[in-house]
Design a protein around this nucleic acid. Structure first.
Length: 488
DNA sequence: ATGTGC
């Protein structure tokens, strides 16, 4: 059966180069552009036919530019594949909630320290316990902060800046966030009361699933100049925060899937899959979704900023040193699930497009105006978390990536097994013991969370990263390895 | 991913 699936895929795809496979326009009559799937021959064996079909389905949407794309970590998602990238013309194109996903601005940030791995290794269990205590995690977890109505409006409007101005972090943190931790054009009046009430008690909470807070160390340098610019060196302790917009973003997506589904019919858009519901980019429906999505994205940036502050506080207490002494600067913060209005050069012309990245990382090149001065020479830090217990990577964006993939790269390891299947296949306690035998401390709300996130339920983050590196969509800077993980 | 399942 497995064999048949593989043959099916190879019958459809045309090999462009070692890491690029095309879904020809002729594959389905509704395709407006070809699909492009960025995978190595090895990873092609993990590619599901359903994911390929989703790439083709996205290619049917009005105003799509160049290609419907999938990154090497792509797998089946709601309508659009996770690992999907698609850009739509600002005027003639569409905006689709399925192209962003339920966890709006699920993303990652990396914070450096002046600590060496040997300073923390023997204290890891206690440190993870402290982090677990300080940062609420798990489904439905509630924060020590409860946002008032006016605070929630500010969070929706200003993202990370709200957090910094309210004492959760440093002004310089903002320079080291994609878009300074904010999407412009957010409008809290477009967010339902239900989404608001879910959001109020959750600012500064980690969530569940693949979301985590990880203490890591830099284990390998690939690009010394870029590592220097990012403030990273071998043996150094760093920590990574991976989380999103929690219940608020989920509710906003749910609300607008209904609105946009009606709009698809109203505007007569033919859809090969209902889950691709979308509306003309400039329609009031699409613009309302965009304004609400921006609120969720900003909420997620504020959320990661508050968690950063509390994590810094844990380190300060734990090591009895202040954060300047500990050198806990934010390296960068990137979104993995978001739609943005960006300028790209298409067929030699500058053009504004709505780039949908769903399980994909923005990867802007050296010199781009959105980058802080310190990163202008090397390009944007691209943060790629591994699955639990496996390496994570920092890469930098490139000019080639702008041309090939609208300045985008992969976002992680990518599932090969559903959550349900993983829970059936693995025992959380055994997975935890295996990780501990390798010197990795894991603490979660429940063993089943560990089973769901077992490393074997995912592709290899290294193989995934090598594809974007070899294509030069983004280039490797450092590899980091986990020492301690706190998860929902 | 998600106050986890019509």
């Amino acid at each position: 059966m497995q064999e048949e699936t593989e043959i099916g895929i190879l019958d459809i795809l045309t090999k462009i180069n070692d890491n690029t496979w095309e879904v020809p326009k002729s594959y389905k009559p509704f395709m407006r552009v070809p699909g492009r799937i960025f995978v190595s021959e090895t990873l092609l064996h993990d590619l599901d036919k359903g994911t390929l079909d989703q790439v083709a389905n996205v290619a049917s949407l009005p105003g799509i530019q160049k290609y419907s794309m999938a990154m090497p970590d792509a797998h089946l998602g709601y309508g659009f594949p996770i690992g999907g990238v698609a850009a739509f013309d600002k005027e003639e194109g569409v905006i689709s909630p399925g192209g962003v996903g339920f966890d709006i601005n699920c993303g990652v940030r990396l914070i450096r320290t002046n600590l060496h791995k040997e300073d923390v290794r023997s204290h890891m269990k206690e440190l993870v316990d402290e982090l677990f205590r300080a940062i609420p995690s798990g489904v439905g977890s509630k924060s020590r902060i409860r946002a008032s109505d006016s605070e929630l409006d500010d969070i929706f409007l200003h993202g990370s800046k709200w957090a910094v101005e309210n004492g959760y972090g440093e002004k310089t943190d903002l320079d080291h966030c994609e878009g300074r931790g904010c999407i412009e054009g957010a409008d809290p009046s477009k967010v339902s009361e239900k989404a608001r009430s879910r959001g109020k008690p959750q600012i500064g909470t980690l969530g569940s699933g693949n979301h985590f807070l990880e203490v890591q160390y830099v284990d390998k340098i690939y690009d010394q100049e870029a590592a220097d610019a990012f403030g990273l060196e071998e043996g150094q302790v760093v920590f990574m925060i991976h989380c999103g917009s929690r219940g608020a973003g989920h509710q906003i997506c749910t609300d607008y899937i209904k609105t946009i589904s009606r709009a698809s019919k109203k505007y007569g858009i033919q859809l090969p899959d209902k889950q691709l519901a979308c509306a003309p980019a400039q329609s009031p429906e699409a613009q309302d979704y965009f304004k609400a999505m921006a609120c969720a994205a900003n909420y997620a940036w504020a959320n990661r900023q508050v968690i950063t502050h509390w994590t810094r506080a844990v380190f300060e207490r734990f090591f009895g040193r202040d954060m300047d002494d500990l050198g806990m600067d934010l390296v960068y913060d990137v979104a993995h699930n978001v739609a943005k209005l960006e300028e790209h050069i298409i067929d030699g012309m500058k053009k504004e497009v709505y780039v949908h990245r769903k399980g994909a990382t923005r990867a802007f090149p050296p010199g781009h105006h959105d980058l802080p001065d310190v990163y202008k020479a090397v390009g944007q830090p691209v943060l790629i978390p591994g699955s639990m217990g496996t390496p994570s990577y920092v890469l930098h964006g490139t000019e080639a990536g702008m041309g090939v993939a609208f300045g985008s790269a992969c976002h992680g390891a990518g599932r090969v097994m559903s959550r349900a299947h993983a829970k059936h296949e693995f025992f959380g306690e055994t997975v935890k013991e295996n990780l501990e035998a390798r010197g990795i401390t894991v603490k979660a709300t429940h063993p089943s969370v560990i089973a769901e996130e077992a490393p074997d339920a995912y592709k290899s983050s290294s193989e995934v990263v090598d594809v974007v590196h070899n294509l030069e969509i983004a280039k490797k800077v450092v590899r980091v390895l986990p020492m301690g993980v706190a998860k929902g």
